[in-house]
Design a protein around this nucleic acid. Structure first.
Lengths: 256, 256
DNA sequence: CGGGTTATTGATGGTGTTCAAGGGGTGTGG
DNA sequence: CCACACCCCTTGAACACCATCAATAACCCG
């Protein structure tokens, strides 16, 4: 099911102890689950001090998602917000006639729920087995009002997302097909680097269709471009992803 | 220079008194300039109570921008943030080879400076004569840390912008040319409605090239589509903009 | 092994781009 | 006040990029 690359970088650590709501957080001597959380230092929780983290932990609820499972649907009442702790989540919007735009992919450390109205404006589902930390949205927002550093961190996250969204607008609006795919691989690789270190191996837990729907292309175009790069030894086909052989030429496809 | 439509909806009110930095805010009995500000209730300032607004006002600096004048350039050190009080500002990113993506247009009440790193990631310039309220970014952010409602408001703004950005990704990634132009006119009209009320007249202070660069199209395509709509009596050419004659069919071009 | 899904590859065609020329409005200077 | 220049927009014709259609191949999982 999951390939070697996915296991190495994205998939949940099966040896990690199963988590429970942190009732134990109030018991002296009991280790907080947040303390052992692998995204503790990246995620929004990093805004909470070790002393304050229990306030957040009390609100948290651990969630394991099998592969290809919906987390929520566009239009659902937006009751929860999430932090991804492992795996990969696909965020998408659908048009009535079946056209699809993949808004983005959430990876470990990412926060889902920033751009929320009363209802979710996009759908979210897992690509691979994933784990999330779930919070009641109302309670989470209430806490953020009591803990300014948390709110600041949320705001920082939102502005960062906004910059990424603007980057992507340039890709969708003004880049040619080849440039789009190159930009995608390079950026996805860069985001992975924060979680699992810089590597020539780039796991791609999403399918070609997902990449196409993210880049405003068809699956055939994505496939053809990547096939050409493989023939030209720019990338190498690796189960579960690709390996970048010629960074130079891949970046060169961006000409900017 | 400015057409009737622009004057009516977008341009600065020349009869408004010229503004000065609000030194007078601390003088008892002296009216705050924010009190008479036309975007006081829409902009981020709405998060500040009438009592607290002077803290913000002290940091503010009024700015008048002639038409087609740069506010800042991508790459500039991001020293300021802004609130638009009148006019219209174009936000764009440029590629090395001259391709351009218009990220968005800011109108009265809009806040510019959400997605900021140390340097501006996009350029901003006025389309028509515009007025802005300028703040030192560092001081503004410091104040937001002291006034949680302001920070909350900034965060709300950021999430709202993020939703708009995601909407636009769908337009750029999965909409046909005609749908893109329809979506643009309808959304621009809707945004204007908040400032100047609902109207069939839609001022378009930006040029066809700007619209094209916003929608990932060429100026010829935008021109052809709008010309066809004019022949079909769906819209009417009005100096400085268009008038929507057949809301039904224009919305129908979106099929969703 | 077999069924279904996903990816690849090829042939053809359409939507929007590119190239090119002309129109219309506005501001300026004679 | 008119002439001219400039810019922006419009319109037409040819082309290109990517989409569509179609068939096969690879893969995964039951």
């Amino acid at each position: 099911m999951t390939s070697a690359l996915e296991d190495a970088v994205i998939s949940p650590d099966v040896e990690a102890p199963a988590r429970q709501p942190a009732i134990c957080a109030s018991v002296p001597g009991c280790k907080s689950i947040c303390e052992t959380c692998r995204v503790r230092l990246y995620a929004v929780c990093s805004a909470m001090s070790d002393d304050d983290i229990s306030d957040l932990e009390i609100l948290s609820h651990h969630l394991d998602l099998p592969p290809r499972t919906p987390l929520f649907l566009a239009g659902d009442s937006a009751r929860h917000v999430f932090t991804v702790t492992s795996g990969a989540i696909r965020l998408q919007r659908d048009l009535a006639d079946g056209r699809r735009q993949v808004i983005g992919f959430a990876m470990p450390g990412d926060f889902i729920g920033l751009s929320l109205d009363e209802n979710y404006s996009f759908s979210a589902d897992s690509l691979v087995p994933s784990s999330l930390c779930r919070f009641e949205r109302a309670a989470f927002m209430a806490l953020s009002r009591q803990k300014p550093p948390l709110l600041q961190r949320l705001h920082l996250n939102a502005t960062h997302e906004l910059t990424i969204a603007q980057d992507h607008m340039v890709v969708l609006g003004r880049r040619r097909a080849e440039e789009r795919v190159a930009a995608f691989i390079l950026r996805w690789r860069q985001r992975l680097a924060r979680v699992s270190g810089k590597s020539a191996n780039v796991p791609l837990p999403m399918g070609r269709q997902d990449i196409a729907d993210h880049l405003g292309l068809t699956i055939e175009t994505v496939s053809r471009i990547m096939a050409r790069w493989m023939r030209d030894r720019i990338i190498l086909d690796v189960p579960g992803g690709v390996r970048v052989l010629d960074d130079e030429r891949l970046s060169g496809a961006l000409s900017d």
